[in-house]
Design a protein around this nucleic acid. Structure first.
Length: 501
RNA sequence: GGUGACGUGGCCGAGUGGCUAGGCAAGGGUCUGCAAAACCCUCUACGACGGUUCGAAUCCGUCCGUCACCUCCA
């Protein structure tokens, strides 16, 4: 049924109201990363988009079935069989310096997929309904390849099995790289397997009995092509047809284009109705890359300074990712991050003052309550309008200001309304409070620091009572050196850790 | 060369025919032993040029610029 949840569909190049196949039930699939290293904030920008679709749909009262995969098979450059080393990214990672700690690619994949899930929770991403792994679905992939051969959409060569692009006339609909495009063909002639019927045909299975990860198939030992894994897993868990499919913009072509071709050739039915793509993020105005030194993983930002991180509040990182619209180029900067650390401090202060509700009851009594309720409604409307996170955040900030102005004098009714609002906003945006308790060490309180700070504050309090301002300022400087900022309030001295920025 | 997206104030970023989004930074103020935090005030922009219109940042056209993809990529 048609809803007022609108999303930009890459397939139609229009913002469309989402019409789910089953009333009130959204099924969607989001492409996950290859786990050959730590996921970076760019990866997470895409995952956050999927997370927001899920949160918005749930807040509208929809049921959601959400699958996102872990690619734990290394894939070669699709058609490049000329590489004598036969290396893929996972094999390369194993040979790198970081890879020395792993005995084989399987261990490496296990390690990094564990880290992916940790970071997932640190950034307060909702756990998917199912998180399938490519290596656990080889059987389904082989069956899909066999079926494509049987239906005349694929063929075998001495090197592998290929999907025949010309057997799927609407190939290119998603990316615009259509079959009629002659010029394109000359570009892609660079890498050619002489046995391929068409240079555009892509691999479904690669024959390779030397590969570090290999399985037995009707075509001998080898491993599956990259695109078939997502088709096979999406269909295994969500059915032949799904509502929505998401991923990074780089996946439009070839990955998603090929998924459509395979899936629809298998079932004869439209695969996904809505295709949602997240723009790449840049860091400090440049493409994120290790050589430029602007490459950030989640732990680079949130781990404590002693463990190689910057000690930043993970939800400030999440808020930063939300500050730009998913479909626009986004420039991730330390400056923006700093601003969001501040926003988070304000929110955290409110949460500390009123408490975070543990149940689902939401009441918005009183003037403040109705004001907050309408702010939440505005945020939800913004999210339903193609995930307009900047507008939703603007609403969040407006409410935060409103509460903060009267934080010291809130009535019980107002406290209840505030708690309801925080919980509702958090359900929608996930930047108020971390719901899961799989938190990493970076949020554990530092007992030694706490004791040292408390001792100094008592000393300073005495100095202030003696009007010994010189000594009081000295102690404040000592605290600053410890990375602590002091604030004198009517209720006594408060302190907070200064972020490592 | 092909395909697609984007261009808003000092900065980040919504809006999409008339009605100042919001934030950050900056400046001023209240508060404070001094600060910090908080609060109040100030800061009116839409790449260029044409066109449509009573009226355009918004619609149309042309141009310029930036970014991404074109078989590793979120």
């Amino acid at each position: 049924m048609e809803s007022d949840f609108k999303i930009y569909n890459t397939l139609s190049r229009e913002v469309e109201p989402i019409q789910t196949l089953k009333k009130g039930h959204l099924t969607f699939y989001s492409c996950g990363p290859t786990v050959y290293s730590y996921a970076h904030i760019g990866n997470f920008r895409s995952f956050v988009t999927a997370d927001l679709i899920l949160r918005t749909a749930r807040k509208m009262g929809w049921q959601v079935t959400y699958a996102t995969n872990i690619t734990d098979v290394g894939h070669l450059t699709e058609d490049d069989f000329s590489d004598p080393s036969g290396e893929d990214r996972m094999a390369k990672a194993l040979r790198s310096k970081e890879g020395e700690q792993f005995s084989n690619v399987w261990d490496l994949a296990r390690f990094y997929s564990g880290k992916l899930i940790e970071d997932w929770h640190i950034l307060n991403l909702v756990e998917p309904t199912i998180r399938p792994r490519a290596t656990e679905h080889i059987r389904e992939q082989i069956a899909a390849v066999q079926s494509l051969i049987d239906k005349g959409h694929a063929y075998e060569t001495s090197q592998g099995v290929y999907f025949s692009v010309t057997s799927f006339p609407s190939y290119g609909q998603l990316s615009g790289n259509t079959l009629e495009n002659e010029l394109e063909q000359t570009v892609r002639d660079v890498v050619v397997d002489s046995e391929k019927k068409d240079p555009r045909d892509f691999a479904l299975w690669k024959k390779d009995d030397k590969h570090l990860m290999q399985w037995y198939s009707p075509w001998g030992w080898g491993f599956p092509g990259w695109h078939i894994e997502c088709s096979a897993m999406a269909m295994a868990y969500l059915g032949d047809q799904i509502d929505l499919h998401a991923g990074g913009e780089d996946l439009i072509f070839p990955h998603h284009e090929c998924e459509i071709a395979q899936s629809e050739s298998l079932t004869g039915k439209p695969f996904a109705k809505y295709w949602v793509h997240t723009r790449f993020l840049q860091v400090e105005g440049e493409k994120m890359s290790k050589s430029l030194g602007n490459f950030f993983t989640v732990r680079d930002l949130v781990a404590p300074p002693g463990e190689g991180g910057k000690g930043i509040d993970p939800l400030a990182v999440r808020m930063t990712l939300l500050s730009g619209h998913y479909r626009k180029p986004f420039n991730f900067t330390i400056k923006t991050l700093k601003g969001n650390v501040k926003h988070r401090e304000r929110l955290a202060e409110i949460v500390t003052a009123v408490g975070y509700p543990s149940d689902d009851s939401r009441t918005y009594d009183g003037d403040l309550g109705s004001a907050l309720k309408s702010i939440f409604d505005r945020a939800l409307e913004a999210m339903k309008d193609d995930l307009n996170t900047p507008t939703a955040l603007a609403a969040l900030f407006g409410g935060t200001k409103m509460i903060q102005a009267k934080l010291a004098t809130l009535s019980q009714t107002e406290i209840t309304a505030t708690r309801s609002w925080l919980a509702d906003m958090n359900d929608l945006l996930g930047v108020v409070h971390v719901n899961n308790n799989v938190l990493a060490s970076n949020v554990k309180p530092d007992e030694d620091l706490n004791n040292a700070v408390e001792a100094l504050l008592i000393e300073r309090q005495q100095a202030r009572m003696d009007k010994n301002w010189g000594k009081a300022d000295e102690i404040r400087e000592a605290l600053t050196a410890l990375g602590v900022e002091v604030m004198d309030t009517a209720q006594g001295a408060k302190w907070k850790k200064i972020g490592g920025l």
